[in-house]
Design a protein around this nucleic acid. Structure first.
Length: 821
DNA sequence: TCCCACTTGGTTTTT
DNA sequence: CCAAGTGGGA
């Protein structure tokens, strides 16, 4: 009897095939972690591989921790010498040793998104970028995408030939990298990029790591991006013992640069690769699995596979709908309580999953009211709270004076009477002398332009220098407490009447306990290492698992986890799938969203509850969304309640009890748009915001009047959106048919949509189109034109029109609402 | 320089 | 809804 006897045939193959490249296609719940851990055990115990020659890479620290624990439990000794780590920590470890070869200091700092934004803002100001045209966010995400693809600023510039915007971005990218280098800082993406650069620039370094990591395993391979793949490829290039494990159906990080081709084309890169499919699911009941399979089947680009289970049918999937998100939260919370009463052993068996972090709020409130222990994964990161960032900025400044961002953050916190003007002057001096901001501070008395303000800078510098000298004999805890004491930071909070001052103080206390626990768990605690650990924690890493808390998290965070009871909340088109993906013209986006649904469903072992709220407040506006298309893709016999079937033209009394505000910019003039209230067109309103209000009821009424493209009304310009109040009234309106029910998009941003985007599933019957090729038509936005082509798509007609003014446009008939002339 | 009140713009998911 | 930005007054 060996530990391998419990594995099925495919799993055994995955464990025993240790030579050469291996692609393990592991469906949800098919025991891939088991295969990986047993494989490590096999390599060590049966194959005589030294533990330190094995590397296992995961995406989160939590996954790494779990893997380590499981390896420990099946192999007695040496397990701790297996390198189990995340991509980012791996790179940091390598870079801490060798990045000086790329001209950085080995004690570089790691910039988080906030720091990146600060840098970018500064650059935009200096380069006089019009941030109305090119937003900082856009710039940063362009740079991030470039890095994911290993495109350097120079490459970017070359690719930008002739493209004005791209060329501009290239310039910013270049400058951004220069600033980071000057500050001795790397952003998240750089960690990977620089490691690759290092390996390419220093073959001897690469080779030492190749010899070290003779057997490499990569978990969640479907989420790797091009840069990460290159890193792995380089490391594995000498011995080619590379085992990657993944599931193309669970690829949900395209927005982060994940390249699904990495998994789909693995066999092309490694022609000799062994491909093993794990298709038996050990996690979920038949019903859950059937539902998941039914949903994912709607994706076109995927490797074909058939997940099956020996588990019983299980209960049907619970589907519940509610009028409001409040009632939804109430139900979920009550249901959890009920399960506990009826014998569920701990709250930790339940997880509530949702699409966006914002959705946690209402659920949390209910859990608080009911007194049920819960934990929210993610949301506002502990380490991105203001007070924590301030404290860390002090530590960073003490650790690495070249980090200008950190220095500037704290130079006037608490207030020292050092204002923006002074900071600009110091920066100018620093630029002139080509030194860091902090070094400029040290020479403050040399800076002519700041005059008497120099006197205020000296104490700050002295303070930092003192901290540095104390670092010799201080523990980190002592240092932190000294910083708090000397700066008077907490004291200031205590004296302030700010209502969340108390929270902030508590957070600082929590930071201190984190420092203490860091010191306790590390042999040689040091400041740089602590800051680095802090920089690399993922939200999921931070959940303190006492096993008796309901977990609330996004679907993304839930990947890799499983629970006996899972709730998928907010299953509404516009929420999930998000309206971003619904309105996207890239069909791949909705597929990624569907994979997310697949991930969500397959988290459940036996009990899955799907909830829907007809009405939901999101971003300060009430939305009315139809049931998620993903729910509709689940065969009805798997659900325990039927989807509502609304008969068309079923008139009902509609009580309008709340008028909600919806504002949009009325430019460009004449633009058609969708809001949650239906389709509409902007009318002239001056250049100010106009207030647009309409109830669902009115929408129906007016579309019956046959206004093409909807109906328009502008309220008095002078009246601000918030102040308009209308009297509720009841109107008889037709209920929506399911088809009509679909094209609902959130308000706000959706105001900028031209009604043309492919939202429509509401296929018009061929006979209802009264125009054809050659006819003259009018479009609400583009004016008059001639129909040149009509093509029947799966859902709708695609109409090509050459407009007199706007040129050729291709649009869906249901949306274009063309009028024959 | 600081502080307040008010306006404005932005909103998915995350290592 | 919320965070960041603006502008006036102390």
């Amino acid at each position: 009897m060996s530990i391998y006897d419990t594995l099925n045939e495919q799993q055994k193959q995955g464990v025993f095939t240790v030579d050469g490249p291996v692609l393990l296609l592991a469906g949800a719940g098919s025991g891939k972690t088991r295969v990986l851990t047993h494989r490590i055990a096999y390599l060590i115990d049966e194959f005589g591989v030294q533990p330190w020659n094995i590397m296992a890479i995961t995406f989160t620290n939590k996954a790494a921790g779990e893997m380590r624990e499981r390896v420990n439990s099946i192999i007695g000794h040496g397990a701790e010498q297996v390198w189990v780590s995340t991509f980012h920590s791996t790179c940091v470890r390598i870079l801490r040793r060798y990045i000086d070869r790329l001209g950085f200091d080995n004690n570089f700092t790691i910039y988080d998104t906030d720091d990146q934004k600060t840098v970018m803002k500064d650059i935009c100001k200096r380069l006089q970028i019009d941030t109305k045209m090119l937003k900082e966010r856009t710039l940063l995400s362009a740079i991030s995408s470039a890095k994911d693809e290993l495109i350097s600023p120079v490459d970017y510039q070359l690719q930008a030939m002739g493209d004005y915007n791209k060329a501009k971005i290239a310039g910013v990218y270049h400058e951004y990298q220069a600033v980071l280098r000057k500050n001795n800082a790397l952003d998240f993406d750089d960690l990977i990029v620089k490691a690759v650069e290092l390996f390419k620039a220093c073959p001897e370094v690469l080779e030492s790591y190749q010899d070290r990591f003779r057997y490499i395993m990569v978990d969640e391979y479907q989420d790797t991006n091009t840069a990460q793949f290159e890193l792995i490829r380089l490391l594995a290039d000498k011995y080619r013992n590379l085992c990657v494990v993944g599931d193309d159906d669970q690829s949900i990080y395209k927005f982060r640069g994940a390249n699904i081709r990495n998994i789909l084309d693995f066999e092309k890169v490694y022609a000799e690769a062994t491909v093993i499919k794990l298709e038996q699911n050990y996690r979920s009941s038949q019903n859950v699995l059937d539902a998941a399979n039914a949903v994912i089947r709607n994706n076109v680009s995927r490797k074909d596979k058939a997940l099956w289970t020996r588990k019983g049918e299980g209960s049907r999937i619970h589907f519940r709908q509610f009028d409001t998100a409040f009632e939804e939260a109430e139900y979920i919370c009550d249901d959890v309580a009920k399960k506990k009463r009826e014998g569920m052993s701990s709250y930790g068996e339940c997880a509530i999953l949702y699409r966006t972090n914002a959705q946690s709020r209402m659920l949390e409130e209910r859990f608080v009211v009911q007194g049920i222990p819960y934990d929210v994964v993610g949301g506002t990161n502990f380490y991105s709270r203001r007070e924590i960032k301030d404290m860390l900025a002090y530590l960073k400044t003490i650790d690495n004076g070249r980090d200008d961002v950190a220095v500037k953050r704290i130079i006037n916190v608490p207030k020292r009477g050092i204002g923006a003007t002074t900071i600009v002057r110091v920066q100018e001096y620093a630029d002139m002398r080509n030194i860091s901001f902090y070094d400029a501070l040290r020479e403050a008395d040399q800076i002519m332009t700041i005059g008497k303000s120099a006197a205020k800078l000296a104490p700050f510098v002295t303070m930092i220098q003192t901290f540095r000298s104390k670092l010799e004999y201080y523990s980190l805890e002592e240092l932190m407490k000294d910083v708090i004491e000397t700066t008077g930071y907490v004291k200031e909070l205590e004296e302030s009447d700010d209502e969340d001052a108390e929270d902030r103080i508590n957070n600082i206390d929590e930071l201190i306990s984190k420092i203490v626990s860091y010191q306790e768990t590390h042999e040689e605690p040091n400041l740089s290492e602590f800051l680095e650990e802090v920089a690399l924690v993922a939200d999921i890493d931070r959940i303190e698992d006492d096993g008796n808390r309901v977990l609330l998290m996004t679907l993304h965070s839930a990947k890799g986890l499983e629970f006996p009871h899972v709730y998928l909340a907010g299953m509404e088109d516009g929420v999930f799938p998000s309206y971003m993906t619904i309105t996207s013209d890239n069909p791949e986006d909705i597929e990624e969203e569907r994979r997310l649904a697949y991930v969500g469903i397959t988290r459940a072992k036996e009990d899955l509850t799907i909830t829907y709220a007809k009405q939901r407040m999101l971003r300060g506006e009430t939305q009315y969304n139809p049931i998620s298309r993903f729910v509709k893709e689940i065969p009805e016999q798997l659900l325990d309640s039927r989807l509502p079937s609304v008969r068309s033209r079923d008139y009902t009394e509609y009580e309008e009890d709340s008028y909600e505000r919806s504002h949009f910019k009325a430019k460009p003039f004449g633009m058609s748009y969708m809001s949650q209230y239906g389709a509409g067109t902007a009318e002239k309103s001056g250049d100010k915001e106009v207030s647009y209000r309409r109830t669902e009821a009115e929408q129906s009424v007016f579309s019956r009047e046959g206004a093409s493209g909807g109906y328009q009304r502008i309220f008095d310009k002078g009246v601000s959106a918030q102040s308009v109040k209308s009297k509720p009234k009841a109107i008889a309106v037709p209920k929506r048919t399911p088809a009509e029910n679909r094209p609902f998009i959130a308000g706000g941003a959706a105001g900028s949509l031209s009604g043309v985007s492919g939202l429509s599933k509401g296929a018009p019957e061929a006979g209802t189109l009264n125009y054809g090729v050659g006819d003259r038509v009018r479009h609400i936005k583009y004016g008059e034109g001639t129909v040149t082509k009509m093509e029947k798509g799966p859902r709708d007609y695609q109409v090509t029109v050459v407009f007199d003014e706007a040129g050729q446009k291709i649009m869906y008939a249901a949306f274009a609402k063309l009028k024959k002339l």
